[in-house]
Simulated scan of single mutants.
Amino acid sequence: MTQDDLALLRLLAAGGASAPRRRLLERYGSPARAIEAGIAAWRDAGLDAAQVRALEAARPSPHARDWLAVPGQRLLGWHDPDYPALLRRMPAPPLGLFVAGDAGLLWHPCVAVVGTRAPTAGGRDHARGFATALARAGLGVCSGLAAGIDTVAHGAALEAGGATIAVLGSGLDRPYPRANAGLLREVAARGVAVSEHPPGTGARREHFPARNRIIAGLSLGTLVVEAAHRSGALITARLAADAGREVFAIPGSIRNPMARGCHRLLRDGAVLVEEPAEVVAALGPVAQALADALRTRLQAPINAAGHACEAVSNASPRPDPDYQRLWSALGHDPSPMDQLLERTGLTAAQASSMLLLMELDGRVVQAHGRYARKS
Rank of each mutant, 00 (worst) to 15 (best):
R185D: 02
A181C: 09
R124C: 15
G169T: 13
T116M: 09
A103R: 12
V111K: 02
A203T: 11
H154Q: 11
H108L: 08
C142R: 07
R128G: 08
S143Q: 09
A193P: 01
R128P: 01
W107N: 14
V113K: 03
G161Q: 12
G191N: 08
G182Y: 05
G144H: 12
D173N: 09
L106W: 00
T120L: 09
D102L: 05
D173F: 14
L145F: 02
A193Y: 00
A135G: 06
A121G: 15
A163P: 00
L168K: 01
G200D: 14
G171I: 01
C110N: 04
A153S: 13
T120P: 05
L158R: 05
C142E: 08
T164E: 07
L158W: 02
H126K: 08
G161R: 13
A153N: 07
A193S: 04
A157W: 00
I149M: 07
G202I: 15
S170P: 06
S195Q: 14
L168N: 04
P199T: 03
L168D: 01
S195G: 14
G104W: 10
G129K: 07
A133P: 03
L139N: 03
A160V: 13
G101H: 05
T120F: 13
R185L: 00
A181Y: 01
A133K: 08
L105N: 01
L139W: 03
P119Y: 15
G148S: 12
A166D: 03
A153Q: 11
C110A: 11
A112S: 14
G191V: 04
P198I: 09
L172M: 05
G161C: 13
A133I: 10
G104M: 10
L145W: 02
A100R: 00
A203W: 04
T120K: 10
D125Q: 09
D150P: 04
P119I: 15
G161M: 10
A137I: 13
A156G: 08
P199C: 12
L134T: 10
P199G: 13
T132P: 01
S143P: 07
G140D: 07
V194L: 03
T116D: 04
W107A: 11
V141Y: 01
G123T: 14
I165D: 00
A181W: 00
G129A: 11
G169H: 00
G191S: 06
G101I: 15
I149K: 07
G129D: 12
V114S: 04
A103V: 14
R185W: 10
T116S: 11
T164L: 07
V187G: 03
V192S: 05
T201G: 02
L105K: 09
E186Q: 15
L168R: 01
A156W: 11
T164K: 06
L183Y: 04
A153E: 09
G191E: 09
E196G: 11
L172H: 01
R124A: 10
R185S: 05
R178I: 08
R174N: 04
T116G: 06
S170E: 06
V141P: 00
T164G: 03
R185F: 02
H197P: 00
V113F: 06
R190C: 06
V114R: 06
V111H: 05
L145S: 05
N180A: 09
L134P: 03
G122Y: 14
H108Y: 07
G101C: 05
G140E: 04
A153P: 07
D102Y: 03
P198L: 11
D173L: 13
L105F: 11
